[in-house]
Structures are given as structure tokens and as C-alpha cells.
């Protein structure tokens, strides 16, 4: 057999996963249906009318209103300061506060529910000690509780924050709670899941030791699992906080007085210049949040 033939044979007999191939086909099919279908209309973006709109938007609408009125006495600093004083500062403060309360609530709930979602722990024979232990009858239920908790977590995070907030707004009325609940529920679902995965991947030596000394599940959780898992969980917590800041801004658009409310308000009044400045304020807050979170995560890693 020549080397070329051998190569070809090796190539033909390479290990292939049918599942991955099927996935690739499915992905290709999805792409084809999406881009060939009529749901997404890219062509008419460039219609002359829309291009006119865009031109007017960029040339006129975005330039500051007072500049258009009275170019001589216009000062950029005063204009931006006036937007800051009017709604910008309040909106930003509220956005920040909503994100902080939500992440604290989500963090606490996610953390204390996390052990309930860890599969190796919620087991009749936790961590597979292979040691003869007395098994209480109730512990048969544990794997079911675990599955139930995981399903609940999926439900909490599958529904977008925006939808949660929309639903709660109708029940609780105007105020910060709908936004906080929405963010807290969605993120508690995510953090609970990440926490459970962290616990599953922990080094089990110390927990096993405690079990062998006769500790109960809750004692092991309190003394070993929580202590070991916390550092990683804090990383996730700050990473999710970044997202909370982003989402808290936007949740204003359904009528909660965070920055998004004033952004949408400016859009409805067609004061696009003001809208642009408010969006930039929001972007600065998000960047600051990312920076703080990055520094914190670096310092505790």
C-alpha cells in the first residue's frame, strides 16, 4: 500500500459521530431556511425611502436641538449637563440601585438553592462514598427533589427578564419591584444552576471525610461545600451583575423609571438628540460596571 493510499484509508475510517453530523445538517438547514425565507427582510433596509430617513436622522435629528435653534449661544457642556440634570442622573442612579438589589437577592437565593440542584449530592449515596451507610427512607425522594429544582431553575431562566417584568408590572403596579423581581428570578435561576455545577465539580475529599465522621447532609453543606464553592460562585455573581446593569437599563422601557424609561420617552417625543446622550450615559454606566466587576474578579481569583 502506498502512503497515499494508506492516508486515504485512514481518512475514510476516521471516527465520526453521527450526532455531530446530524447537528451540522440541522444547523445548515436552519441557516438555509432563515436566510432564504421571507421572515427577515434585509433588502428593503436599503430602499431609497429608508436611506432618506437614515440621512435625515443622522444629519438633523441627532444634532442637539438648541444647536439647531440658536447656533451662536450653544455650548456642548451646558447641553449635556442639562440632560444629566433633567433625567440622566436620576435614571442612572435608579438603574444602578435596581441592579444591586436584584443581584443581591438572586445571589442569596441562588446560593442556598444550589446544593439542592447538585446531582452527586442529592443522591441516596452522596458523593458515592461506597461506604455502608444507613439510608433513611426519605432519601429516596432526594433525586426527585433535585430534578424538580433543576426544572424550576430552567423555568426561571428560560423566561426573559423583560417578560417577567412585563407580567409583574401588571400585578404590582409602578415601582421598582417588578424590575427587581424580574432580574432576581431570572438570575437566581442562572446562578442556582451555575452554583449546582460548581458544587458537582468540587473536590470531594473533605466532604467525604465529614460524611465518614457521621455528619449529616446539611452539616456537610454548611461546613465543607459552601466554604469550598464560594470563591467560584463570587466570580459568577459579579459576572451576572454586569448583565443586571445592562438589563436594568432596558427594563425601564416597560414603564419602570430606570434610564430606559427616559430613553424611550425621548424616542416617543422624537427628541433623538436627547435619546443619544441618554444612551451614551447608559453605555458609560455599563462600561464602569464591567470595569469594577473585572477588577473584583481579578483580585479574588
Amino acid at each position: 500500500m502506498t502512503p497515499a493510499q494508506r492516508e486515504r484509508e485512514l481518512y475514510r475510517n476516521r471516527s465520526r459521530s453521527r450526532f455531530i453530523r446530524a447537528s451540522n445538517w440541522a444547523l445548515g438547514g436552519l441557516l438555509a431556511v432563515t436566510w432564504a425565507g421571507e421572515t427577515i427582510d434585509f433588502r428593503s433596509i436599503f430602499s431609497p425611502q429608508r436611506m432618506n430617513n437614515l440621512q435625515r436622522f443622522l444629519r438633523e435629528d441627532l444634532s442637539p436641538w438648541p444647536l439647531r435653534q440658536n447656533p451662536e449661544s450653544f455650548s456642548w457642556g451646558d447641553w449635556i449637563l442639562s440632560i444629566w440634570n433633567q433625567h440622566g442622573a436620576d435614571g442612572l442612579l435608579l438603574t444602578l440601585c435596581i441592579s444591586l438589589v436584584s443581584i443581591a437577592l438572586a445571589g442569596v437565593f441562588g446560593w442556598f438553592v444550589a446544593p439542592l440542584g447538585a446531582r452527586n449530592f442529592m443522591h441516596q449515596d452522596p458523593l458515592h462514598r461506597t461506604l455502608q451507610v444507613e439510608t433513611k427512607n426519605e432519601s429516596v425522594l432526594l433525586p426527585w427533589i433535585c430534578q424538580g429544582v433543576r426544572l424550576l431553575q430552567i423555568f426561571m431562566r428560560a423566561i426573559p427578564e423583560y417578560v417577567w417584568a412585563f407580567l409583574f408590572l401588571a400585578m404590582l403596579g409602578l415601582g421598582a419591584w417588578p424590575a427587581i423581581l424580574a432580574l432576581a428570578i431570572h438570575n437566581a435561576g442562572i446562578l442556582g444552576r451555575l452554583g449546582a455545577e460548581t458544587i458537582e465539580n468540587l473536590d470531594s475529599k473533605s466532604s467525604r471525610g465529614l460524611f465518614q465522621l457521621g455528619a449529616s447532609r446539611s452539616q456537610v453543606v454548611a461546613s465543607s461545600i459552601f466554604a469550598q464553592g464560594l470563591p467560584r460562585y463570587i466570580l459568577f455573581l459579579f459576572y451576572r451583575w454586569e448583565t443586571c446593569v445592562r438589563e436594568a437599563t432596558v427594563l425601564g422601557m416597560i414603564g419602570i423609571l430606570s434610564l430606559g424609561y427616559w430613553i424611550d420617552d425621548a424616542r416617543v417625543r422624537q427628541h433623538y438628540d436627547e435619546m443619544l446622550v441618554l444612551v451614551l450615559f447608559g453605555a458609560i454606566l455599563v462600561l464602569l460596571g464591567d470595569l469594577i466587576s473585572h477588577q473584583v474578579r481579578k483580585s479574588i481569583r
Binding site: 433596509i45 444612551v279 447608559g282 462600561l287
Partner: peptide
């Protein structure tokens, strides 16, 4: 960083204001 710092819904309402209602712009 700039692309990330503005939420997708804010980009969406920006495009809504700039070129009007269009699914391609939303995407």
C-alpha cells in the same frame, strides 16, 4: 466594548428611529 455596552433593545429602538420598522434592522 462600545458594541457591547449598548443593549440590543436600545440598538433596536435606535434603528427604529433611524430607518423605521424593518425586520432586517432588528436582526
Amino acid at each position: 466594548g462600545g458594541m457591547r455596552s449598548v443593549h440590543e433593545l436600545l440598538w433596536a429602538i435606535f434603528f427604529l428611529a433611524a430607518i423605521g420598522f424593518n425586520s432586517g434592522a432588528a436582526v
